[in-house]
Design a protein around this nucleic acid. Structure first.
Length: 490
RNA sequence: GGCGGCGUAGCCAAGUGGCUAAGGCAGUGGUCUGCAAAACCAUUAUUCAUCGGUUCGACUCCGAUCGCCGCCUCCA
């Protein structure tokens, strides 16, 4: 089996081919650190986290580079607002980024370069572009001459004529072509500056990724990723810079994930319709956010809503309940007397779980389909467990334990089912209990009273207690081992 | 205006030339229960925005139409 994924550059799904055997070199555009991260950033981080984890699970070596833009107009503007040095603001929000992403359980990339640590490399690259005739100095600025790069527009599939027609960029007398973009900006008073052959200034946004990817991955590498909003102009400009300088293919493939929307409108800072990761994590377990994010294919838009999160909560809990149920089976409690109750069709389904998940993931990292397989498998495992006799056959116990193990292994690619199932359910219950108006001890006391009533067949009072608890969102479950309770969902 | 994408059951969401159109939520029936709940079982789209075309055969390819979204300025 081979891994296929959609390459924005070709517009088609293609088989993964690496420049070096079994080694994927991946560069992803990270954040500009001037504010807290929102769910869109979570999607980006988690999408590539999942991709990297899957590639590694499939025995690829992965070199994963993700940058931080820590010098930029927005950072300077925000720093001025807050009356603090831009570098301080930038480093503060890099820390906040880590705080959020660590909570989400995202693995750190292998290399995380910061733009300000690579000004020398950028100057070098700009210099090469000037020498090759792809860039020119105008006043204190340096611009990239888009007309010098014939393939300009190949990623975003537009040509310069079309772009000019719809251009909303302000006219700049210094530019030879209005689409030319800045590589080096002459500094204004009070801004962070670095010395360069063109005077004091700072780098443009696009050049940093070209310079840093070249340093850590070379002139050509396998996959470049980011959000769909980066296709133009950022990634288009990166191609122009890198290929203009090297004359070689920059990234073989491009992966772009879709946006998170709210009421079908793109979540963005400028619209103000965003929720930060910490907003979400104050209400939901990190795995719920992960479950939600992976319930839709990474290239499709993902609409955020409370009901979608509620759905994810229930879905994840269902999987955890399946695992918890199997975890409670005593592995020693088998009997040689018992014969296996397993059906061939079920055995086949569970044994093919991993293969089927691989098929889904091989097909453009289809996490939504993989989740479907998780549920399908959980259903079968639940049914088998439910039908188990007092003392089951050893074979059946092993089958269930292995099934749960495989389920966890595969869910881990998406960062799901990572904690002990019973612990997760306990945390989840605890959290819900905390929102109740009634203390657990009171609940236990009422259950105790109801137990006595039921023994005496005092159904009216026993039902009254149940209804009373239900009104307080407590649901009772009468089982053979007594009554347990949980907090009503939704 | 240019470019890209989407439209699958009440909702969410896979599938992308051919056995029964995954899965989840919600719903319905059943088992269990004193009655419930939970759990488990079963069930819920002759149909994939609309209309044409290609094909032995299309949700899947092509064209048109309608609707929605994104990019074309910073943005994950």
């Amino acid at each position: 089996m081979t891994i296929q994924f959609y390459n924005t550059l070709s517009g088609k799904k293609e088989v993964l081919q690496t420049l070096e055997p079994d080694h994927v070199k991946l560069y992803v555009c990270g954040i500009t650190s001037y504010d807290y991260c929102h769910i869109g950033h979570a999607r980006s981080t988690l999408a590539f986290d999942m991709i990297v984890r899957y590639l590694r699970y499939r025995n690829y070596k992965v070199t994963y580079v993700r940058n931080f833009t820590d010098i930029d107009d927005k950072i300077i503007a925000r720093a001025q607002e807050q009356n603090c040095p831009p570098e301080e603001l930038a480093s503060r929000f890099i820390e906040e980024f880590y705080t959020d992403m660590d909570k989400l359980g995202a693995d750190r990339p292998d290399i995380e370069p910061k733009a300000t640590d690579h000004i020398g490399e950028m100057i070098e690259l700009i210099d090469e572009l000037i020498t090759k005739g792809n860039a020119y100095q105008a006043g204190n600025d340096v611009y990239y001459a888009v007309d010098s790069f014939l393939d300009y527009g190949k990623l975003s599939k537009r040509n310069l004529e079309d772009m000019k027609a719809g251009a909303r960029i302000s006219v700049n007398e210094q530019k030879k072509n209005p689409m030319d973009f800045v590589l080096w900006k002459g500094s204004k008073p009070g801004e962070p500056t670095w010395n360069s052959p063109w005077g004091a200034g700072r780098p443009g946004w696009h050049i940093e990724c070209s310079a840093m990817s070249r340093k850590y991955l070379g002139e050509s590498f396998d996959i470049h990723g980011g959000g769909q909003d980066l296709i133009f102009p950022h990634h288009e400009n990166e191609i122009a810079q890198s290929e203009g300088a090297s004359g070689k293919c920059f990234a073989s493939s491009w992966i772009h994930h879709g946006f998170v929307t709210i009421s079908d409108v793109k979540m963005s800072k400028s619209l103000g319709n965003f929720l930060t990761i910490r907003d979400i994590l104050s209400n939901y377990h990190p795995e719920i956010l992960r479950f939600f994010i992976f319930s839709t294919h990474y290239r499709n838009p993902l609409d955020f809503s409370e009901s979608a999160m509620q759905n994810a909560t229930i879905g994840l809990e269902r999987l955890y309940e399946c695992v918890a149920g199997i975890d409670t089976i005593d592995p020693e409690n088998s009997s040689t007397e018992s014969s296996s109750t397993l059906l061939p069709a079920d055995i086949e389904k569970i044994e093919s779980m991993e293969t089927r998940v691989q098929q889904a993931m091989d097909n453009d990292f289809n996490t939504a389909q993989a989740q479907g397989i998780f549920f399908d498998s959980a259903k079968i495992l639940n049914r088998i467990r439910k039908a188990l006799p007092e003392k089951p056959a050893q074979k059946d116990i092993d089958f269930l334990k292995n099934g749960a193990k495989t389920l966890k292994l595969l869910a881990d690619i998406m960062g799901l089912l990572r904690i002990d199932a019973r612990e997760y359910l306990a945390i989840s219950k605890e959290k819900m209990v905390a929102e109740l108006d009634i203390a657990p001890s009171e609940i236990e006391a009422l259950i105790e009273e109801r137990y006595r009533c039921r023994k005496e067949k005092n159904w009216p009072r026993s039902d009254e207690i149940r209804d009373q608890l239900l009104a307080g969102n407590i649901v009772l479950k009468d089982g053979p081992d007594g009554t347990s309770w949980s907090v009503k969902k939704s």
